[in-house]
Structures are given as C-alpha cells and as structure tokens.
Simulated scan of single mutants.
Amino acid sequence: MLSVLGLDDLENRLYERLLDVSSASADRLAPDVGADVAEVVLALAGLEARGLVARSSRHPDQVTAAPPDVGLGSLIAERQAALRRAQQAVPALVQRYRQAVGGRDGSDVVDVVLGAEAVAQRAVQLQHGARREVLTLLPGDPPAAVQDALDRERAVPRGVEHRLVVARAVLEQPGLLERLTDPAGRPEQVRVATHLPLRLLVTDRALALVPLSSGSGSGGTADGAGALLVRPSGLLDALVALFDLVWQRGHRVVGARDGGAQLASTPLDALDLRILTLLLSGLTDQSIGKQLGLSLRTVQRRARALMDATGVSTRLQLGYEVARRGWV
C-alpha cells in the first residue's frame, strides 16, 4: 500500500505493525513481520530516515511509529512536489523530442522492437500514454493471443476514446463477446470486420505499433517475434487511414454499455438486438448461440421472429429492413 511512497514490503509491514503497538525493539518485531533481526534493523533505519519512526527516549533499543497524518503526510507532500516538477519539465522535453524528430532521416521513422516481452511492454506504454484516442485492429489470432491482447486493452486511461475493430473469427471464440462489451471494461466502441490484414495499435494518431512480419502474429499487443514502432510519417498516415477505412466498413457490436440507448428507439428487446447485430456481422447461428449462451434452436426461433416482425422472408431482406428502419 505504501510502496508508492518509496517503502519496500518489509518497511511497509514494520510501520503497520508499529501502529498497533506503543513501541517495540527489532528483536520483538522480527518474528511479527517474518524477517531476520538484521533485516529489521536495516529497515527500521530506513523508516527513521524518512521520519516514520523515532527512537524511544527511555529505551533507545525501541522505536515508535510517527502519526500517519504527520509522517505519511510529509512523504505525500514530497512526492506531490516531485510530480509537479516532473510535469513542469514535460513541455521542454517534448520540444526537444520534436526538434530531434524534425532532424531525423527516413531510417529514424521506424524503430524495431524485438522480443515478445519488449513488444508487450511497449504496447502498454503507448496505451498508458494516450491522451485523446486509441485505435486497435485485432485479427483472429489464436485464443490465448486474443485474450492477452484484450487484457492489455485495459491499460487505456479513463477518458480516452478507444475504438476497436475485431475480425469475425474473434467472435467465434466462446466468451469473447462478453469481454468486448463488458460495461466495466474496455473499449467503448467495438466493430467487427470480415477480415483484418494485420494487427495494429495507434495512439493519438501520432505513434503506431505493427507486426515486424506477417508471420509474427504480434501486431501491437500480442506475443511474437517483434514489432515496428512507427513515428509521424507518410507510413503512419497510411496506417491511420487504413484503420479509418476498416472502421467505416465494420459492423457495430452492441453490448450492455450502449444497448439501452438503442433499445429506446426500437421495438426489440436487448437479446434480439444483440442477436441481430451478430447476424449482420456474419456469425453463424451456432456461433451466436455460443456467444450468448443460447441453444441453436433458440437463436433460429428468435431470428425467425425478427423476420416475421419486419414482414420479410429472407435474412438478406431482414438486414436491409433493419438498416432502413435505423435499428442498428
């Protein structure tokens, strides 16, 4: 809990233990925190230097904890001051970076990131650093790779617009739909495309992460041999344009987050609306049943009811009719 203030795990346990006792020696504290006496002595010295503990005037071998509002309050104020100084330094650092970028030749437009761990770390850094928007293309990789990618999608900060396009094959994986449309998770807007040419991560339309090769399967967010970090350039413009084109042609996936607002303007219930959007995304009845936890017969029955409600006899006509009525 106190690691953000610079305390290690042992120092944290010692300080919390001292809050429960009036005073104690290193010998007494060692078994309480599960550490050697020598380790406790060093940790107490660190706490004393931070002003979190003080020596007892009557028993020099014992220490007492400083009141949290005094000791911790001082450390918090120091950290806040350090953060303000760092924040004030950012504009100058950004200016230096932009000047350096302006002087780069073509070979500096792309950085090569090698190794699965390095690629994953860079993807999380890009997402954490986003200020306006994050754009992601997620093709139909193996299930484990898709799950890892979605886990890392949660690194996107609150308040940042996040748009994700997934390949239809992704929705064939059981349980993926719920993760994509979880109201407590990310991203806010999801669309599905028949096929995606590559995995792509773009932040603020200023940086992009793409697979090092078509065989790596890593894209910006999954395991693989490596990736390319693309800086502002014609190549980056092309990647952003690719995302915009794919997004425009994709079908929106309706989830619990936005389904309520859409239901107000349609005669459909929440389940029918989700079935309809998945049908329009190209999923088979069997795949829809797996995603929504329904039997094949139930999906077919409700699809038939949608056709009857719109007065059509084929699913092709159903798609046209619901689009004409503005239901999706």
Rank of each mutant, 00 (worst) to 15 (best):
R325Y: 10
V156Y: 05
Q125W: 08
E48C: 07
D105R: 09
V113I: 09
P67F: 11
L209W: 11
E117G: 01
G260A: 10
R199M: 06
K290D: 15
Q147A: 15
A323Y: 06
S74L: 04
Y320W: 09
L228W: 11
A144G: 10
L75G: 05
R274D: 14
G46V: 03
H195C: 02
Y15P: 06
V124S: 14
Q189S: 02
Q291F: 09
R297V: 01
G73K: 13
S216G: 15
V94H: 08
G73F: 12
Q173G: 01
E321T: 05
D27W: 03
S213W: 07
V101F: 04
L273I: 00
D285M: 02
V124F: 09
L268R: 04
D32F: 12
L276N: 04
A89V: 01
H162R: 00
L138M: 11
S74M: 08
L245Q: 12
P211Y: 02
R79W: 07
G73R: 10
S107C: 00
M1D: 08
V146R: 01
S74E: 13
P60L: 11
L316N: 07
D141W: 14
H59S: 11
A261L: 10
L201P: 04
G219V: 07
A82H: 11
P157H: 13
L10G: 04
L93F: 02
I76V: 14
R98E: 15
V124D: 15
G102I: 01
V90Y: 15
T181C: 14
A305V: 02
H195G: 01
T194F: 01
D204H: 03
S216P: 03
P183A: 07
A149K: 02
A303Q: 11
V41T: 10
T277E: 05
E133R: 14
